[in-house]
């Protein structure tokens, strides 16, 4: 489903932050992406989301070479990917319900067609009573769950999560991990970028370790 071949990335004229990255992920896999701060985890996630272009090498997503794709096709591929940002990126002027429904609205679906799904999902992530609340009044954990709900509402084939447990207590982190495992069981491939070893130890999943721009799968 995802194939990286000799991918390198540098910002401007700076040094390479990713070097000769090679890996192949199959459909329905579950991976942790780890490494020290500044190792290039977020850059790798941005390459997966096609928000950056590699300086060299080839990236194949869902069987397509991303380098050749025009902008509308890249947007269509992005619809098959759900992303959970480290800083949540919820829109402050929209309610929790509207934030979660945003991808479906963007896909051009009518509100009536997805209204029930959004409500059910929010109840499933434990935000049933916070649907009309705005992000500024949500706690860190609630924002995180809203961001996860937004990432999965479009039933993505691939879920990327950047430090999804960075702002929550260990108990909430375990709950969120169980949520990701449950999504994976339903068929979604999951990549969680984290340097929380306690979290990784709770799940027997392969680890993609980035160190000084080099990737090793353990």
């Amino acid at each position: 489903m995802i194939r990286f071949e000799n991918v390198g990335l540098r910002y401007g004229l700076g040094p390479e932050v990713l070097r000769d990255v090679d890996f192949h992920l199959v459909r329905g896999s579950f991976h942790f992406l780890t490494g020290p701060s500044g190792a290039g985890k977020t850059s790798l996630l941005r390459l997966l989301l096609m928000s950056l272009r590699p300086s060299r090498g080839l990236i194949h997503l869902f069987g397509q070479n991303c380098a050749d794709l025009p902008s509308p096709e890249r947007a269509d591929l992005r619809r098959r990917i759900g992303i959970v940002f480290q800083d949540f990126r919820l829109l402050d002027h929209l309610t929790t319900w509207e934030n979660v429904a945003l991808p479906l609205r963007v896909f051009g679906k009518s509100e009536a067609s997805y209204s029930e799904d959004v409500t059910d999902l929010l109840k499933w992530v434990g935000l049933g009573d916070r649907m009309t609340a705005y992000p500024e009044v949500l706690s860190g954990g609630e924002k995180q769950r809203a961001a996860i709900a937004r990432a999965v509402i479009g039933k993505p084939e691939l879920l990327l999560a950047d430090e999804p447990t960075g702002n929550v207590d260990p108990n909430m982190a375990n709950r969120l991990l169980r949520l990701f495992i449950e999504l994976n069981r339903l068929g979604t491939s999951v990549i969680i970028a984290t340097h929380d070893f306690q979290l990784m130890d709770q799940c027997d999943a392969p680890r993609m370790v980035l160190n000084e721009g080099n990737l090793e799968v353990r």
Binding site: S51, S71, P72, A75, R78, R79, I83, F85, F107
Partner: peptide, 9 residues
């Protein structure tokens, strides 16, 4: 955010 959730330009 719109860009990342798959909105076309």
């Amino acid at each position: 955010v719109l860009h990342f959730v798959g909105a076309r330009e």
